[in-house]
Simulated scan of single mutants.
Amino acid sequence: MATRDVVFPPGRQALYDRNRYSPAIRSNGLLFVSGQVGSREDGSPEPDLQAQVRRAFENLNAVLGAAGCTFEDVIDATVFIVDPAANFETIWQTASAYWGEAPHPTLTAVGVTWLYGFQFEIKVIARLPQAGQS
């Protein structure tokens, strides 16, 4: 098996090691980013929903940045929302500050019943800058 080309953002490797997953993997010109939640450095959730969404995007941006990417390089996003009927508008108002200008990435939103104490999670696939434009 080939060695995975793992990307770690600064200061969070212990969290990923403890939970046994990689934050992102480079492969064939793409960056596959694991779901990012609004966790503090110790892994605990931000209690306020808007703060949790902001921190999830900040955590995502840290992973993207460690690979030399920005949110502008994101081509596909999947979000997971606990109780989307109650939380979607609050989440989307907060997320829009990070989403950037059109054209936007593709998006799949999934309503879930449990996210390990979190209410929002985002995972993405991004184009690595050196892979060129397509």
Rank of each mutant, 00 (worst) to 15 (best):
Q36T: 11
A126M: 08
D17P: 02
S96P: 02
T3W: 02
P23A: 13
R127G: 12
Y98T: 13
R26W: 03
V37R: 11
S27R: 15
C69T: 05
P9L: 02
D17Y: 06
E46Y: 14
V110T: 14
R127Y: 15
R26F: 04
E101W: 12
R20Q: 13
Q133F: 15
P9M: 06
V79M: 07
A77R: 08
T78Q: 08
Q36N: 09
Q119T: 13
D17K: 05
E89Y: 07
I91R: 07
Y21Q: 09
G117S: 12
Q133W: 10
I91H: 09
L128K: 02
L15A: 04
G100Q: 05
Q50T: 14
I125G: 06
Q93G: 00
A56W: 06
Y98H: 15
A97I: 00
T78S: 04
G29R: 02
V6E: 09
T106A: 12
Y21C: 09
M1N: 03
S22N: 10
M1H: 07
V37H: 03
A77Q: 11
Q13D: 13
V124T: 06
W114D: 15
G38D: 02
L128T: 08
Y21R: 15
A131I: 04
P105E: 00
V6K: 06
W92G: 08
L31W: 07
A67Q: 04
V33H: 00
L31D: 11
A86P: 10
T3H: 07
A131N: 02
E41Q: 14
P103T: 13
P105C: 00
Y116N: 09
F32N: 04
W92E: 13
L128I: 05
Q36S: 04
A86M: 12
F71V: 00
P47C: 08
R55G: 05
